[in-house]
Structures are given as C-alpha cells and as structure tokens.
C-alpha cells in the first residue's frame, strides 16, 4: 500500500480548524500528592491521525482515561464532540482499543465481535468487521485460546465494529511481530483515510513518524510538544553530517574542530561524523576550510532521537528550576 505525502500530512482531508473532535482545557489530574497530568490544553480536529508519545508514567494513560470519561479531571474540562465523553460513547461516536482491555472469556471470536457490532448504534455486519480486521479465519476460535497478537486484532475489531468518528488506540501493536504490525497499520490507515480521527498512544516512535500527521509528546504530566513529526524533529535541532576524507586530498583534520555549530565530532579512519545545530553553516564551512568531502550526507535525526532530546531538555529545565527554587528558599531564610 502506498501512502502519498498528501495522505500523511492530512492535507487531503478536512484540515485543522474545521471542527472539534476532542478538547482538553487546562486539564489536571491529581492522585494524592502526585500530579499525573499537569494543566494540559489541546484540541483534536476531524480527520487527524495523532500519535501520543511519552515514557511510562508520563501521564498518557491517565489522559486517555479522562478523554474517555473513565476518570474525571481534578481541574479543567474534557469534552468529546462538544459534550461529555460518556455521551459521545453512548452515541457510538468513539471506538476504543484499550491496552488493558481484557476480552470476555468462554465465547467465540465471532460471538464477541457480533456483540460489539450489536451494541453499537451504527454497527457494521460482523463478517465485514472480521474481514477488515483480518481475523475471518479466527471467527470460530475461542477467545481464551488466542495468542497476544491475535487478541490485539480482536480488540481492534471491537474498536471498529461500528461507524465511529474517533478511534482511540492505546499501545495497539504491543505483542505483535513486525509483519503483523505493518498489516495492522495498513488497516488503520484505511480507517484514517475514511475521514476518521485516530488517536494512538505508542512507544514505537517509528510508527508515530510514519503514520501520524500530528505528534503529541507528554513528559512528567505536561504536554511538551505538539506538532508534525518534522516540526518536532526540527525542534530537537540536530542534523547529522557524514562524509569521507581521502588522504590524497590533503586534509588537515585539526581544522574540523574549528567548524561552526558543531555539537559532536567523530572521526574514525577516513570517515567523519558530525552532529550539527546548523547544518547549512557547518557544510559551507567545511568547503571553505578547503576540505573535499566525499559521499557527503546530511540527514535529520529520527523522531526517536528528537524525542529523547526534547524530554532530556525538559528534565534539565525542571532540575534547574527545582534548584532555583531551593536556592530562593535558602536565600529567603
């Protein structure tokens, strides 16, 4: 299945601003002394495919619980389609695949998916749902006899049993092998292309990179990034420059240390690898210094590195803020 740039960026669908699927307005959630979610505001628009990133304990699951009305926020408001989450669910506007969503035992796959179709106000035919989820051949198996990856597909079938406008997936590909994951996402893309809004939490960053047209990053209960994967990668700033230097070209390696905007430098044999904050300036300086770089490549960092970069920045900022507070207190005394 090919994915055009247009589909990936969502430009072909109704663009942002043409409605509101879900909205968090200054939402916080406190568990005792712990602030699991700290003042989040965001709006999901129709047709967006949104990846929700964050380490364990970042506040993703708590946010998803509040989005679905499973937990109430301590402060702020969460709305789905302009109303309460519960109402949206009763109206069949949301299909959900929970990470922890157990399945009813002692029934066959077809019976369980049939129930999900039946309970949805605009449910599809059970055979169509099974076929879409790619589990037609599992229809007569008992639910308790499935492998982890098969269970995930049954959960997906339950989430897509009816004509919902928003599909929420919490770690949907956990327990699937690479092939199953690819198959899963091609099915999921079809859902997004049908105009549905898709929100998925994942810890596979390459999935977010290749599928989402918007990425949300949570860290220590706060939303620290919200943009396209490209924007988030750009925010991390880093680009990688690599090239070979041949001895016959007569290069003076010590000049490499004087290049501008370099954050890391690694020379092994003839190969030079540079991490740069400003790749344009660095590359121009390489030529100006008289180097003859062979096989020059400039590449952006992956979303994964960007993710670690921005969460790391946030940690450093939090630490210095905490230190500042401690010093202030010390001075006040």
């Amino acid at each position: 299945m090919s994915t055009s740039v247009e589909q990936r960026t969502g430009a072909g669908r109704r663009g942002p601003g043409s409605g509101e699927v879900a909205a968090f307005r200054n939402v916080s959630k406190q568990f005792g002394a712990v602030k699991a979610v700290n003042d989040i505001s965001l709006v999901l628009h129709p047709g967006e495919t949104v990846a929700f990133l964050g380490r364990n304990g970042a506040g993703k699951s708590t946010s998803i619980d509040m989005l679905l009305g499973l937990r109430d926020p301590s402060a702020g408001s969460v709305t789905l389609f302009g109303g309460t989450p519960r109402q949206a669910i009763l109206d069949g506007r949301v299909g959900v695949m929970l990470q922890s969503g157990g399945l009813m035992p002692d029934v066959k796959v077809r019976e369980l998916v049939g129930f999900a179709c039946g309970v949805h106000p605009r449910g599809y035919q059970v055979d169509a749902v099974l076929a879409t989820a790619g589990i037609t051949e599992l229809a007569d198996r008992m639910v308790d006899k499935l492998s982890g990856g098969q269970e995930q597909r049954v959960r997906f079938a339950i989430a897509t049993a009816g004509d919902s406008d928003l599909i929420v997936l919490d770690e949907p590909t956990t327990g699937m092998d690479v092939k199953a994951r690819q198959a899963f996402w091609s099915v999921m893309r079809a859902q997004a292309d049908a105009g549905r809004t898709v929100l998925f939490a994942t810890h596979y960053l390459e999935e977010a990179d290749s599928i989402a047209d918007r990425v949300l990053v949570m860290h220590n209960g706060r939303l620290i990034a919200d943009g396209t994967a490209a924007e988030i990668k750009a925010r991390a700033g880093q680009r990688k420059i690599s090239f070979d230097l041949h001895p016959q070209d007569g290069a003076d390696l010590s000049l490499l240390k004087l290049l501008p905007a370099v954050s890391s430098l690694d020379v092994s044999g003839h190969t030079v690898r540079i991490g740069s904050e400003d790749a344009d300036a660095t590359v121009a300086a390489i030529y100006r210094a008289g180097f003859y770089p062979r096989g020059l490549e400039v590449a952006g960092v992956g979303l994964e590195q960007a993710f670690f970069a921005i969460t790391g920045e946030q940690d450093a900022a939090d630490e210095s803020a905490a230190l500042g507070n401690a010093l202030d207190k010390g001075n006040a005394r």
Partner: peptide, 12 residues
C-alpha cells in the same frame, strides 16, 4: 482484573 469490565464501559 482482565479489563473486560472497563472495555464494556467504552461501548454504548
């Protein structure tokens, strides 16, 4: 424990 009760609360 399995989360089925939770999943049911996310249906209509």
């Amino acid at each position: 424990k399995s989360g089925w009760a939770r999943q049911l609360r996310l249906t209509a």
